[in-house]
Design a protein around this nucleic acid. Structure first.
Lengths: 204, 204
DNA sequence: CGACGATACGGAGATACTCTCCGTTTATCA
DNA sequence: TGATAAACGGAGAGTATCTCCGTATCGTCG
């Protein structure tokens, strides 16, 4: 919606044929609307129809549903990552991490049933996938928060993202749940505790 | 598999006809195997076939998928609740809560994709549902832990169950995630903080 | 410009799943 | 044993996914 979208999959060989490219763009466009309206399990044939192409065309560009979801998220992600930028250098890295997670959840919840995009099946977890980019970004913010000494160091990004995606999933279903509160709770769990039984040589 | 299963839905009027009851039992039996093997989205027609009945019979007993899942869980739940019994009176109610949540997650993970059973759509959340019973049990353990003063009181069972079901869901997908660790993290978040705003300067 | 080869299109249809309708069968009880 | 309510079962409608292949279009080169 904002920036000029990058050439879709950018195959190393020849550029896409004009009609192919046109259809690709149109499909992603229509899919975005469909996912917003009906959630991530919108009918694919229907999307093809609304885009004015045959099902075959859709499945050639996006062999599995996740590919289409990824293409949609690719565009959407730009705005999310923009929000991360100032947080990278924020004065309070712990607060920055919390803020990032809250924003992330809010963004993911724009599409119903899209939480799964955060932790796709292992074999689809390539560098190109939006999930991977989000992991990397979150990882940086986590690392910085950990360096401050206020966040426990025995936690890795995979665990954190698992928790966060769990929150988005659960909030998708049970309405009336305040996702921000759950994120705050997780953040509390992440904080270093002054052990009640151990003489705290804490900090640094 | 252990206790004599209670009469299925126990309609107030007449008892079930013998053949109806037989089919009901058989369906639940076969469904259990199918869910174990293929996860919660196993084919219902296939279950009917394997149980030796027509699809119509299955759908008469279980109009929607969740009804069949609930029936399966009803039996399975007995063993889960048995585990809760000693925890109700455990010396350390906080540890008891943690243990319960860990066991709960472990149990739910026996079936793939069954996390949703923990937070069914609002309108199916009746007293008869396994999810409701689990909520009530968890609620008691949470309350006891809160009374000890070690667990924050500004958390309700709905939020906690949302978090927990999120963990089971996420662990279903991304393999190689240690659910117990995530539960422990949540438990840490639940604990009352002795130092709300100030990093420890020194002892205790 | 015209034609050829590669690329992409599109839609019919195979397959799978859910769920319903209704004629037939079976259990129960008098 | 016969009447009646209860339950069965399977054909089939509706919907979704995904494939195959004859046809159309693009891009390029002579």
């Amino acid at each position: 919606m904002t920036a000029p979208p990058p050439p879709p999959p950018a195959p190393p060989g020849r550029p896409m044929r004009a009609d192919a490219r046109r259809n690709y763009e149109r499909l992603v466009q229509v899919a975005t609307e469909a996912f917003l309206e009906h959630g991530a399990d919108a009918s694919l044939d229907d999307i093809a129809k609304r885009a004015g192409v045959g099902p075959g065309t859709l499945y050639r560009h996006f062999p599995v549903r996740q590919d289409l979801i990824d293409a949609v998220l690719q565009r959407w992600m730009a705005s999310v990552l923009t929000e991360a930028e100032p947080l990278r250098v924020a004065a309070d890295p712990v607060e920055a991490l919390g803020m990032w997670l809250r924003r992330l959840v809010a963004h993911v919840q724009v599409f119903r049933g899209l939480s799964s995009a955060l932790i796709p099946p292992e074999d689809k977890f390539k560098e190109s996938s939006p999930a991977w980019v989000l992991h990397r970004t979150s990882e940086e913010l986590l690392a910085r928060a950990q360096e401050s000494g206020e966040i426990r160091s025995d936690i890795d990004i995979k665990e954190l993202m698992t928790l966060v995606s769990g929150v988005t999933w659960a909030c998708d279903r049970g309405k009336e749940i305040d996702a921000d509160r759950l994120i705050d709770l997780i953040m509390d769990g992440l904080r270093v505790r002054d052990r009640p039984d151990r003489p705290p040589v804490a900090g640094a």
